[in-house]
Computed example of a mutant assay.
Amino acid sequence: MTTISRGTPAGTERSPLFCDPALAARIERAEVELIAQGNAAASRRRPPGEAVGFVLPLAGGVASYAEDGSPLNKVAGLGFGVVPTANDLAEVERAFASRGAPVQAEVATLADPAVADLLTGRGYRLVSFENVLGRALDGAHRTVTPPGIEIRTSGQDAFDQWLEVMADGVAVSDTEGVAAHEEFTREVLLGAMRDLAAAVGVRRYGAWRDGVFAGGASLRISGDIAQFGGAATVPAHRRRGIQSALLAARLADATAAGCEVAVITTQPGSKSQHNAQRSGFDLLYTRAILVREPA
């Protein structure tokens, strides 16, 4: 088991969470599980005979294609223990090319450098980055909500409303930080959110501001890793503390569930990253996003 640096004794300033390749491997394995389960849900969602996706194991990671334009179309989890061969990658590239799609590989900076060397040698080009932040869950966390805001779990009866609010929040991106390198149609985004919400261990949260459903988020428990994902606030309700309140609620629940580490992925320099760091998350590593267009 990886040793987790939990900081200094109680009563002194908390030290940052240190991430070594072993901890990064655990986080990336949780990400691979989530992608594979979301892909399986996408396949179940489509009518019989119309499923176009695939999931291919790749050197300890995964190559996933769910449907045209989906955020689940990616290669993830490479470079921890095994480096893919040129033949492995050629098979994946053919599978994506047969659907007219580029291959998007997300490679952690703590992965084996041979992976990035192999990809760039095959014509993959760097298009963007995303940051992975984490926090050791080593004590009690209390929920903190500003006046007029209520955070509670979102049940199945409110699932469609949760999806719409999440899509509304994501559709109008935050103007701070580095812009995302890709955009998704509302239809595809709703489908992907529905699929990821079906993954094992996912809990949904809703944020109400003065009685109005104003934001949402999700939490996935994977062993001792808590993945914070899918957080969004409707534009009219931003800058009211909703994101911080959603973070606090999930921190409390992840701690109560016995998780050791909470992780969240953000765009570099974004408001989401700012909120996460204000809530005690530390930058663990970055994922480089490399893309190879179909031949």
Results as ranks from 00 to 15, higher is better:
residue 160 D to T: 14
residue 109 T to L: 11
residue 124 Y to V: 02
residue 123 G to L: 02
residue 147 P to T: 04
residue 154 S to Q: 05
residue 132 V to G: 02
residue 103 V to I: 07
residue 139 G to Q: 13
residue 117 D to I: 03
residue 143 T to M: 14
residue 123 G to H: 04
residue 150 E to G: 00
residue 149 I to R: 01
residue 132 V to F: 11
residue 162 W to C: 11
residue 109 T to A: 03
residue 119 L to M: 03
residue 124 Y to P: 01
residue 101 A to G: 01
residue 128 S to K: 01
residue 126 L to E: 06
residue 139 G to W: 02
residue 121 G to Y: 04
residue 151 I to K: 07
residue 99 R to G: 05
residue 139 G to E: 14
residue 152 R to V: 10
residue 128 S to W: 13
residue 112 D to H: 08
residue 109 T to G: 07
residue 167 A to K: 04
residue 136 A to L: 07
residue 143 T to H: 05
residue 135 R to E: 05
residue 108 A to P: 13
residue 127 V to S: 00
residue 102 P to S: 13
residue 156 Q to C: 01
residue 166 M to S: 14
residue 158 A to C: 11
residue 123 G to W: 03
residue 122 R to V: 03
residue 152 R to K: 14
residue 141 H to T: 00
residue 104 Q to G: 01
residue 151 I to Y: 10
residue 106 E to M: 14
residue 155 G to E: 11
residue 165 V to K: 02
residue 115 V to D: 03
residue 96 F to T: 07
residue 113 P to Q: 05
residue 137 L to V: 06
residue 103 V to S: 09
residue 144 V to N: 03
residue 156 Q to D: 15
residue 120 T to H: 04
residue 161 Q to G: 13
residue 102 P to K: 05
residue 140 A to S: 12
residue 157 D to C: 00
residue 152 R to S: 14
residue 106 E to T: 10
residue 135 R to K: 15
residue 108 A to V: 08
residue 142 R to L: 12
residue 103 V to D: 04
residue 114 A to N: 10
residue 118 L to C: 05
residue 118 L to K: 09
residue 116 A to R: 14
residue 104 Q to W: 02
residue 164 E to W: 01
residue 123 G to V: 03
residue 104 Q to L: 14
residue 122 R to I: 02
residue 130 E to C: 13
residue 137 L to Q: 05
residue 140 A to W: 08
residue 133 L to T: 08
residue 126 L to N: 03
residue 144 V to G: 00
